[in-house]
Simulated scan of single mutants.
Amino acid sequence: MDRRALEGRVGAGLLQVMRRAEEGQEFAARQQGMHPTDFRCLGYLLAQDSPVSPRDIIAYLGLTSGAGTALLDRLESAGFIRRVPHRDDRRSVLIILEKAAAAAPLALHERIRASYAAATADLSDADLEAIATYLERVQALSEQTNLGLYQQAEAERPALQNTETDSRKNR
Rank of each mutant, 00 (worst) to 15 (best):
S77E: 15
D88K: 07
Q32D: 13
S167M: 13
E22F: 08
P105M: 09
N162W: 09
P36K: 08
A70I: 06
R40W: 01
L15K: 08
D122G: 06
H35N: 15
A118T: 04
S167K: 09
A119Y: 04
V17L: 15
Y116T: 09
A118N: 06
V84H: 04
G68N: 08
P36I: 07
T69G: 09
Y116Q: 12
G148E: 04
L160V: 11
S53Y: 00
A119D: 12
A67H: 12
Q32K: 05
A12S: 12
G8Y: 03
P51L: 06
L128D: 00
P36F: 08
L15R: 13
L147G: 11
Q152E: 13
E143R: 15
E110W: 01
A78P: 00
Q48F: 04
P85V: 00
I57G: 03
A67G: 05
V52Y: 06
T133M: 02
R87W: 10
R83D: 00
Y44W: 10
S50D: 11
R171H: 12
I96G: 02
A114C: 04
E26Q: 15
A121C: 02
A107C: 04
L141D: 06
L72V: 08
A5S: 12
R90F: 08
P105F: 11
E22D: 14
G62Y: 03
L45R: 00
V52M: 06
L94C: 07
Q139G: 00
R91A: 08
E98H: 05
R91H: 13
G148M: 09
A5D: 12
L135I: 06
L141H: 11
A103T: 04
S115H: 11
E76M: 07
A28E: 08
K99Y: 01
V84P: 07
D166Q: 13
G11T: 09
E154Y: 06
E143F: 03
G24V: 02
E143M: 11
A78V: 00
A21K: 11
A159D: 09
A102V: 04
V93E: 08
Q48S: 10
Q161Y: 08
F80G: 02
A70G: 08
A67T: 09
Q32N: 13
D56Q: 14
H86L: 03
D49S: 14
R91P: 01
D73Q: 12
T165F: 14
I96N: 02
A114T: 06
A107E: 14
G62P: 06
L6P: 01
G62S: 07
A78D: 06
R168H: 10
R40A: 15
L45P: 11
